[in-house]
Design a binder for these strands. Sequence first.
DNA 1: TTTTAAATGAGAATGATTCTCATTAAATAA
DNA 2: TTATTTAATGAGAATCATTCTCATTTAAAA
Lengths: 142, 142
Amino acid sequence: MNVEKLSSKLTEKGLKVTPQRIAVLEAVMQLHNHPTVDNIIEYIRVNHPNIATATVYKVLDALVQNQLIKKVKTSQDIMRYDAIVEKHHHIYSSDSERIEDYIDEDLNNLLTAYFAQKSIPGFEIEDVNLHIIGKFKSTDNS
Amino acid sequence: MNVEKLSSKLTEKGLKVTPQRIAVLEAVMQLHNHPTVDNIIEYIRVNHPNIATATVYKVLDALVQNQLIKKVKTSQDIMRYDAIVEKHHHIYSSDSERIEDYIDEDLNNLLTAYFAQKSIPGFEIEDVNLHIIGKFKSTDNS
DNA sequence: TTTTAAATGAGAATGATTCTCATTAAATAA
DNA sequence: TTATTTAATGAGAATCATTCTCATTTAAAA
């Protein structure tokens, strides 16, 4: 995604367009493996060596607030981020920190239908997503 | 759950039975709201004022390793724990840190059936659980 | 342009978690 | 039961991710 498109995403949300915000947004989009803040900073500093750590954190917060990216829930105390806004689920490795996206329209439909029919008393559902835990069999990356 | 039962849970896993481990296990079981480590320490120190912070962390790790409790995935950088071992899902408040358990046998069956029929290439599923995000309507606690 | 309000940078501060290591205690063997 | 062994605990320091502060800079509006 080019700078113009990234800029317009920010503008659409009423956010000021700054080089730092472009860089962070681009980084989260390029780093497909649900990057940590460290991953993001490392990526950005190649082309943008002076960006402050606190700036990256503040930009990430702003992007999350405006739903341009999402936080990924983990069982660790470091935060990870996700640039995919399309409805999807996550596959978690049980023997590494690998997290993959899982897009499955049938599953979405199944869950939507299920909760259309079965509501939870005292609770208004806004979103549901499945966490799939297991082991990646292949050899390439884990 | 009494001390004998808690002890035998530890023994079954090959863990030494210590007053600290009993106390931590009991705390996580008593505190039903997916407590933070701080919640747990505060609870324990009432009857056990000298337990060290590091001990609580170490005991929690040991209990998680031995599957007597579970870590709860969150979008925050503090860890929360869950003493329920029964298969269940989680309801997350979108406007507070409240997390509730969601037990639904029909949903379990639906998901099991779905993934019995539809496998994920290169991945061996060990567990799936649903995260339900939304708003609690009631007034009591949120 | 000028103004204004917001974003950034640098480093200090915070706070959850981990580490270290001497001491203590649980489980096992005698 | 007592001695032995091995692991767990306590205390506080250390670490590390994240947040805060505030002076400076910059984007966008006037």
